[in-house]
Amino acid sequence: MEEADSRPPLLVLVGPTAVGKTALSLQLAKALGAEIISGDSMQVYRGMDIGTAKLPLEEREGIPHHLIDICEPSETFSAADFQARCTDAIRDIHSRGKLPMIVGGTGLYVEAVCYGYQFQDYGSDETFRKRMSDYAREFGAEALHARLAAVDPETAGRLHPNDERRVIRALEVYETTGKPLSELQSQSRGDAKRSPYKLCLIGLTMDRDRLYERINERVDLMLEQGLVDEVKGLMDKGVPLSSAALQALGYKEIVPYLTGELDYDSAVALLKRDTRHFAKRQLSWFRHMRELEWVDLDSLPKNSDLFKEICGIIAGKFPFDIEYICS
Rank of each mutant, 00 (worst) to 15 (best):
R273M: 07
A84R: 14
R46D: 11
S182T: 02
K30A: 12
G97M: 05
N162V: 03
S304P: 03
I102L: 10
L258N: 07
G226A: 05
S195F: 08
R281W: 03
A79W: 00
E323K: 04
S304T: 13
N216K: 05
C326G: 08
C326V: 02
E126W: 01
S133W: 06
E154L: 13
K308V: 12
A23I: 00
A29F: 01
R287W: 04
R281L: 13
V255P: 13
R96T: 06
C311T: 04
Y264F: 15
G20W: 03
D49R: 03
L249T: 04
R129K: 06
D163E: 13
G97S: 07
D88P: 02
G116Q: 06
V239G: 06
V44L: 09
R131N: 15
Y324Q: 12
A279F: 04
A244D: 09
P56C: 01
V167F: 02
K272H: 08
D263P: 02
L223A: 02
G62H: 06
S304N: 11
A89C: 11
F128M: 05
S38F: 03
Y122V: 00
K302S: 15
K317C: 15
D265L: 02
H94F: 01
E175D: 12
L306R: 15
L204E: 11
L201K: 14
A23F: 06
D191F: 01
N162H: 11
A31L: 05
E75Y: 01
S284N: 11
G203E: 12
E75M: 09
S284G: 08
L300V: 10
T22F: 08
A149I: 05
L211T: 00
D274A: 03
L211H: 05
A245I: 02
G33K: 04
E3T: 05
H160T: 01
E3N: 05
P16Y: 01
Y212W: 07
G250T: 02
R210D: 14
L67E: 10
F139K: 15
R189A: 15
R137H: 12
L227K: 04
K179C: 10
N303G: 02
S327Q: 14
G250I: 02
R281V: 07
T259P: 07
T17R: 11
